[in-house]
């Protein structure tokens, strides 16, 4: 009896591992192919007969060419600044508003909160044209301010942090109030530190989506030197057309920093995304 149970368990484990390995391969192949292609020559990459999987000689020509043509240090800087400001603005505004919506009583609260909710449901494209008109009438296209602009405040983050504050126990605030703490003091010294993990989650969520955003940067940046990485890659696809080793090398250079950050802070990344997606 126990013998057959053991056999069953082994078979189970083998099947599960096989499924997981199969899916892992599907997930990794595109990245592996990006990596392998970037070290090939164009002839090697486009040779069908014989079909080449590994480059014969690992050539770095493609990397050198795209690095020289695309001013990556500048693109990294733009992307980093964009992420930095988006995260700072989102966390700074949402934590105050989230706390007020969760814990303070004030007139007009429900009306204001329904305005926040409406925006979470509406596709952002409906805001894009007027936002662009504002930026261009301020003559601020091609600036960092323009890139950050739609992310100065966040309805999603406000909602997320409201949920976080609502789950905190009430007695801490009561105690602080009896000790004579004012509302800002209670918030800054007691409540905000307790909602730290949700704030980190919001920060990670904001950073990932700022890094991946494409439409808005393409709209407000016409100058290649002001673009973030995602938009620059889109522009470069047009220029290099079919030079696949160069396209793959550029993609790899653009993806590597985020992937390395992700592999180092994997736990925080996954925790952050999970929190921002399920605590709603």
């Amino acid at each position: 009896m126990s013998q057959s149970k053991k056999v069953n368990k082994v078979i189970n484990t083998v099947i599960i591992q096989a499924v997981l390995i199969f899916f892992s391969i599907l997930m990794i192949v595109p990245f592996a192919w990006m990596f392998l292609t970037s070290f090939k020559t164009v002839t090697e990459a486009t040779s069908v007969n014989p079909f080449v999987i590994f480059p014969k000689v690992w050539k770095t020509d493609a990397f050198v060419t795209v690095w020289n043509n695309m001013s990556f240090p500048l693109l990294y800087k733009n992307t980093l600044l964009l992420i930095f400001w988006r995260v700072v603005c989102a966390c700074a505004t949402a934590t105050f508003a989230g706390y007020a919506f969760a814990r303070l009583k004030f007139p007009g609260k429900n009306l204001m909160f329904s305005l926040v909710l409406i925006q979470m449901m509406i596709p952002s494209q409906i805001f894009t044209i007027p936002q662009y008109t504002m930026i261009s009438s301020l003559q601020m296209t091609n600036t960092m301010f323009a890139l950050v602009f739609p992310g100065l405040v966040t309805a999603f983050g406000t909602f997320l942090l409201r949920q976080a504050y609502m789950q905190l126990p009430k007695d801490l605030e009561e105690a602080a109030r009896l000790d004579g703490c004012s509302i800002p003091q209670t918030f800054v010294f007691i409540m905000a530190p307790l909602a730290r993990s949700s704030m980190v989650a919001l920060g990670i969520f904001t950073a990932v989506f700022a890094y991946k955003e494409l439409l808005w940067p393409m709209v407000v940046c016409t100058d290649a030197k002001k673009e973030p990485l995602a938009a620059a890659l889109a522009t470069m696809q047009g220029q290099y057309a079919t030079n696949y080793p160069q396209l793959m090398a550029a993609s790899l250079i653009a993806c590597i920093p985020m992937i390395i950050l992700y592999l180092i802070f994997q736990k925080q990344f996954i925790q952050g995304i999970a929190t921002s997606g399920t605590k709603l």
Partner: peptide, 29 residues
């Protein structure tokens, strides 16, 4: 009174931002 005052101060940046960046653009669109 204190709650009403600080409540509005706390939501002011977010609400101002949402009105300028989303509500007004929605009407404009």
């Amino acid at each position: 009174k204190s709650q009403a005052l600080w409540g509005w101060i706390f939501i002011l940046p977010t609400m101002a931002g949402l009105i300028i960046l989303n509500i007004w653009p929605l009407i404009q669109s």
